[in-house]
């Protein structure tokens, strides 16, 4: 019996739902986004056409990836009105709700890197070398610069996020090789390597998350018994410490832009330290 299991045995038992709630909700959200696009080709019920790069929902709602719209403008072209409107809507949504909510609730690569992290824990794989935490900011800058210099959407040639989503929706095979590469990179070479260190899309949405409303907080941080479960499962463990330990900040809110608001820490914490809340909720017990 490990230490955390021993502690858990002393606490009132939490149900399966309490222990997996946010993970289940998140997987359902990711699946639902995919099904919106797949119900058309599979069943003839068209909810959304296109893919995450740009889509049309119910012949009414145009949505476009704001990062793509930005890249187009950097190539020296102006996208048509529909794309600009769609990019504005998506931009407004993630500014309001939370930038990296995209990463953990929508992005299809999340399931891949989460699986790699899960398998890494199960197999007890330690070590690996991750690049500097700022790499993704450089990748974002380099990718935007490359668009401006080449006058073409350079990143879209290899972007694993759109590659995977497109492959799933349009039944192409090529995306899966790249995604398999990411899985094994995360599993064997660098823990949380892709989403946590490389992905420029994540970096972009992280920048949008500076003023996001939806936040995870640690209002019961006094109850923390340092079992480290949340650090183990958190895809961006560096965001936990300030809120949990009150280092350099009074607020129990996790305000770091890297937090993907996945809520996994809420699931795993037997002391129920964490909860999902909004930006202005400063209460702590």
């Amino acid at each position: 019996m490990t230490r955390s299991e021993a502690i858990a045995a002393t606490l009132p038992a939490r149900s399966f739902w309490q222990r997996q709630r946010w993970l289940i909700l998140r997987r359902m959200s990711q699946l639902l986004v995919l099904l919106c696009f797949l119900s058309g080709p599979w069943l003839g019920w068209w909810v959304a056409r296109g893919n995450l790069s740009s889509s049309m929902t119910l012949e009414l709602l145009p949505l476009t990836d704001p990062l793509l719209a930005l890249q187009i403008m950097l190539t020296g072209h102006l996208p048509a009105f529909s794309a600009l409107l769609g990019a504005g809507l998506v931009l407004a949504f993630y500014l309001l709700v939370g930038g990296r909510v995209f990463c953990s609730w929508v992005c299809p690569v999340n399931a891949v890197t989460d699986s790699a992290a899960w398998l890494r824990r199960r197999l007890g794989l330690k070590g690996g070398r991750v690049p500097d935490a700022n790499t993704r900011q450089w990748a974002l800058g380099g990718m935007l610069l490359a668009s401006a210099l080449t006058g073409t959407l350079v990143w879209e040639w290899i972007n694993p996020v759109s590659l995977l989503h497109r492959s799933l929706i349009f039944g192409l095979g090529g995306g899966f090789g790249v995604v398999l590469g990411i899985f094994f990179y995360d599993l064997l070479l660098a823990p949380r390597g892709w989403c946590g260190h490389w992905c420029p899309m994540g970096a972009f949405y992280g920048q949008l998350g500076r003023v996001a409303l939806l936040r995870v907080a640690a209002p019961r941080r006094a109850a923390c018994d340092d079992c480290m479960d949340c650090y183990t499962v958190c895809p961006e463990p560096q965001v936990l410490r300030p809120a949990l330990k009150g280092r350099g900040t009074d607020t129990p809110l996790i305000l770091a832009r890297d937090c993907t608001t996945c809520g996994r820490c809420i699931d795993v914490c037997d002391q129920q330290v964490f909860k999902m809340t909004h930006r202005f909720d400063q209460r702590s017990e």
């Binding site: 790499t135 610069l145 080449t150 350079v154 290899i158």
Partner: peptide, 23 residues
């Protein structure tokens, strides 16, 4: 760290650029 990050970022951009050119 900065050097590694800058190098990595540039490598990624370069790789993408070269791939785009060739294809």
């Amino acid at each position: 760290g900065i050097a590694a990050a800058a190098g990595g970022g540039c490598l990624l951009a370069l790789g993408a650029g070269l791939h785009a050119r060739s294809a």
